[in-house]
Write a protein that binds this DNA or RNA. Structure first.
Lengths: 114, 114
DNA sequence: CGGGATCCTTTTTGATACTG
DNA sequence: CAGTATCAAAAAGGATCCCG
């Protein structure tokens, strides 16, 4: 439990895994899908996910370089957790819609994903 | 997804919810179950969980004071996520036992919960 | 008993510029 | 294209002491 939590700790990791859950993506493709992340942070989280064996990094030594990221078998086993989180988020929003709207107006811009 | 992640962000929240999933507990009972947390941090995380409506706080104005914490209905809906995380942790450990042991020896003391 | 208040350290995240 | 490097800010976590 704590272990899974730690593996997912990091503001962007769950989104990265979510994107990679059904596709192999290049570095820039992931970057485009996350408009508010810096290159540095994306790289860092990708490295961390790779170190934890949740994703694989494939480097094609071409010019220009091409790097693809692919979810691993063990990484795929995290997807059901993300799906549950997604469903939970939806029902949570439904329950507290008004309160969440109030917070949102007070604090900042909306999220892409719940 | 991101929302559920944010609600669970905080080093102790998932453990607190785990403990409260099947019992109402007093402040000190939670504290005893988490040997390495300070009172300040426990209080802080409890307040945060309460603000997010995942737990309820019942104060009995006796002397000495008595405060109980109880999971809410919406809080209970997070438990399946924690159970999945727990199972994931177990299979992850099984897959990478050797590597995890190596890290453990290098870094520090073991966890109570995976 | 169940906290709150202060002060401090560690960790995480971000902005910006540069490169093979 | 896919990153590094440097610097700075913010967030999270912790130690310690005090209180009704």
């Amino acid at each position: 439990m704590v272990l899974a939590y730690k593996l997912l700790s990091g503001k962007r990791k769950i989104m990265i895994l979510w994107f990679l859950s059904n596709k192999v993506l290049r570095y820039n493709e992931i970057l485009k899908r996350m408009p508010d992340v810096t290159q540095k942070m994306l790289t860092k989280q990708l490295r961390s996910l790779e170190d934890d064996h949740l994703i694989m990094r494939h480097v094609y030594p071409t010019v220009p370089p091409k790097v693809e990221y692919e979810i691993t078998d063990i990484g795929k086993r995290i997807i059901p957790i993300l799906e549950l989180m997604h469903h939970f988020g939806a029902s949570y929003i439904e329950t507290f819609r008004d309160e969440l709207n109030a917070r949102r107006n007070a604090e900042g811009p909306p999220e892409i994903c719940n």
